[in-house]
């Protein structure tokens, strides 16, 4: 079930790093149903520019309070308008959308690899997985500003990497992950981030034979499977059909898609 909340109320918004915001929205229907990896499609103006909704991953939920949390970076018109929203103001939202991570594990060891804003859905996932599994997260960004902060991080062990060395390991998050894989044998891997990072993670997962789920991004118009704008390449050429990031994804098994 997808809900359309034309006037979802902003509960609070805070800056967590340069140009990056954490937004809490009252959306009980969506909070109830949301699974890690799913997203919402948001319009934060009634004007005609920007016209379309903007997809953002659900970064966390508080089901008791009926809240959903988004963590996003301002990159253009839509996100700029969003970051100007004050508590009590409303935005127009559809959700929860898409297929989330398959995370019905117990007593297993899971590895999470996130780069940039791709960390957002993994924060939700990490918290859920940690309830009954051992989880290790690897989060990377360009600098310390881009990393998640105490307060909205789930309580999971985590290694950070920054390209400029302002926090954690100086270098790529995939380097940290590769070193970990040399010693550990996780049962399941989850990744979300820039394409270059995903390609490296896929290579490593295949090398060690560990199942991997990836969350992909695509430009979207409808977010509900109507426009075919977000099609992803299927890895197997002989199969009939296409994959829509908004409906079949955004989370896919690594072997389903051609990065």
């Amino acid at each position: 079930m997808k809900y359309h909340l034309p006037e979802a109320r902003v509960i609070g918004q805070q800056l967590t790093g340069q140009g990056i915001y954490l937004l809490n929205i009252l959306a009980p229907e969506i909070a109830d149903l949301a699974q890690p990896g799913q997203f919402v499609n948001i319009r934060s103006t009634r004007q005609l520019d920007p016209l379309l909704r903007r997809p953002l991953s659900i970064c966390g939920v508080d089901r008791n309070e009926g809240l959903i949390r988004l963590w996003y970076q301002v990159v253009g018109k839509g996100t700029q308008l969003m970051c100007e929203l004050l508590p009590g103001e409303t935005l127009d939202m559809i959700g929860p959308l898409g297929r989330g991570f398959k995370a019905d594990l117990t007593g297993k060891k899971a590895g999470l690899i996130g780069g940039g804003m791709g960390i957002a859905p993994l924060l939700f996932l990490g918290g859920e997985l940690a309830k009954s599994n051992s989880v290790m997260a690897f989060f990377g960004g360009r600098n310390i500003e881009q990393l998640p902060k105490q307060g909205f991080m789930p309580k999971i062990p985590c290694q950070f990497a920054t390209e400029d060395g302002t926090a954690g390991y100086k270098g790529l998050v995939t380097d940290l992950f590769a070193k970990w894989l040399e010693q550990e044998s996780p049962d399941m891997l989850y990744a979300c981030g820039p394409k270059g990072m995903l390609v490296q993670v896929v290579r490593l997962a295949r090398q060690y034979g560990i199942p991997l789920q990836v969350s992909l991004e695509a430009v979207m118009a409808c977010g509900v499977g109507a426009c075919l704008g977000c099609t992803c390449a299927k890895s197997s050429k002989d199969e009939e059909g296409w994959l829509k990031a908004c409906q079949d994804g955004p989370v896919f098994w690594e072997q389903e898609v051609d990065l």
Binding site: L51, L228, G229
Partner: peptide, 21 residues
């Protein structure tokens, strides 16, 4: 259908090149 990207938003408009997928 056509190659990605297939959608671009313009001022109060949408450009699409789905290509009859």
């Amino acid at each position: 259908g056509n190659t990605m990207p297939r959608l671009v938003e313009t001022t109060a408009g949408l450009l699409n090149s789905i290509g009859l997928e």
